[in-house]
Design a binder for these strands. Structure first.
Lengths: 257, 257
DNA sequence: CGCGGTGGTAATATTTATTTACCAATTCAT
DNA sequence: ATGAATTGGTAAATAAATATTACCACCGCG
């Protein structure tokens, strides 16, 4: 092992390395999430105040490291970062395989509680403003009975809370789950309404969760998150039972003819 | 105040600035004390692997900041500093950079606790036999002082416990994390030994964790998992601090000669 | 007083980065 | 299907930053 010296050779960072460092920092911290399109090269070079060739050099380093995907004529994107633990095929299986689905909810329950606790502790002013805006939108969408807007705002709230946790690993891990669940059958709001036809309880739970984070109340935020997932699970159980009852009733009706 | 943007112009550091930073660091940390003569320009340029003109540029910046005195025909000296409040720039040098690694440990801590709790509740007979076999191997590897076997058994234990949780989603999600930690940051067992030289505490924690799962004690299993990760984190923090102290102590030793 | 150290200056060469121009792929509106 | 406007891709010329080389001036010491 080399002898330690008082002065070390100056490892002067190249311009491309400096650009790489900044973009990697944004990715590592969860600010730039996988799949996100980067600004165009011309725009990004201008923003960073470097030349396009040098920016391209940096982007190629990032591509070599598996962090960025560059597509000719389309753009540059943050590459998939979390191993896709759940492919669509597995999600479809979850939809068919009831116990596995409830495993997913159990796991999700733990993560949401963890995220809510951290978010209540760490949310910045900007985080709280973002959550407050989403709560306003959630309430508006409920009053307008706008299912698509409600669904969108629902995901926005959970996403904002995970972001407010300031935990980069949790942000990355949950981002992949959000993408998958947003696309699939899991978000069956009809089931969610079986316990109360108007969705008012769902609304109250979202408002309580968001407000607890804004108020910085860790215990209350965690409880709200866990209650919410418990409610979701209960609704799905009852929704499945009701489906089964209706299926059997239909069979009985057919047999009675 | 300007609106916050996602990307900032790259503050690409000039070579002279990099030299200034290193010399300032040595002054700030007390390694270069006031009055001390610096190596000659030719020698220092060679050591830093920069050109003399660039080194001179840096020395002049330091002179402007009152940190260095340059005397024609005599040499360069650290200027008198007593009574001078530290420059704001020097205080900035003490800014902290918490690695994303500790975010990861925090996340990991939550997952290990969750897995341990579920495993204690649900482990099958086959799970318990597997865990028991791994505990035997862990003890054997420790007695034989076999680092590679210890490391392998370490991962096997954590993996077996996650498997015993019987939660499909958790198993999927943790599998990808295990792959990552097995290849990278989690390798420095020397750090893990800083709190006890023989690794006996680490051994005891693993045995306690495994046994609690075998005994079906959820509370005990969870606590053992959390204590283990806390121990790991503490060891890393102390290991990093010790590295820094040793590097600086060596430089002070060289200067005392 | 001379020598060997130190810092000081400047011309030239090399490397790094920027600017400019143009080509190829993709998407979208017509 | 086509053209326009976006994106990425390439390369030559130029500018800026850094390194190399040579030489001068000051200082301390024998």
């Amino acid at each position: 092992m080399t002898k330690k010296a008082l002065f070390d050779p100056v490892g002067h960072e190249s311009l491309a390395d400096a650009v790489v460092a900044q973009i990697e920092d944004l990715i590592a911290s969860g600010v730039l999430k996988q799949g996100r399109q980067l600004p165009s090269e011309r725009e990004l070079a201008e923003t960073l105040r470097v030349s396009r060739p040098k920016l391209r050099e940096a982007l190629h380093i990032l591509e070599e490291r598996g962090l960025v995907m560059i597509k000719h004529g389309e753009g540059s994107f943050v590459a998939p970062l979390t191993g896709q633990a759940m492919l669509p095929a597995l999600l479809d299986l979850y939809g068919r395989h009831e116990p596995a689905f409830f495993d997913y909810l159990e796991y999700r329950r733990e993560q949401e509680g963890f995220a809510a606790r951290l978010a209540a502790r760490r949310a910045t002013r900007a985080d709280k403003e973002r959550i407050s805006e989403i709560l306003t939108e959630i309430e508006r969408a409920w009053k307008a009975n706008d299912a698509d807007a409600s669904r969108e705002a629902d995901f926005s709230l959970h996403s904002a809370i995970v972001d407010a946790s300031q935990n980069a690993t949790l942000i990355h891990m949950m981002a992949s789950i959000f993408d998958l669940t947003q696309q699939s059958v899991f978000y069956n709001r009809d089931f969610l309404k079986t316990l109360d036809g108007t969705g008012k309880k769902l609304l109250e739970q979202h408002l309580e969760l968001g407000q607890a984070v804004i108020d910085g109340d860790e215990t209350r935020a965690e409880k709200a998150a866990l209650d919410h997932i418990d409610f979701v699970e209960q609704s799905f159980r009852q929704g499945l039972e009701q489906q089964r009852r209706e299926a059997m009733a239909e069979k009985r009706r057919l047999m009675a003819q």
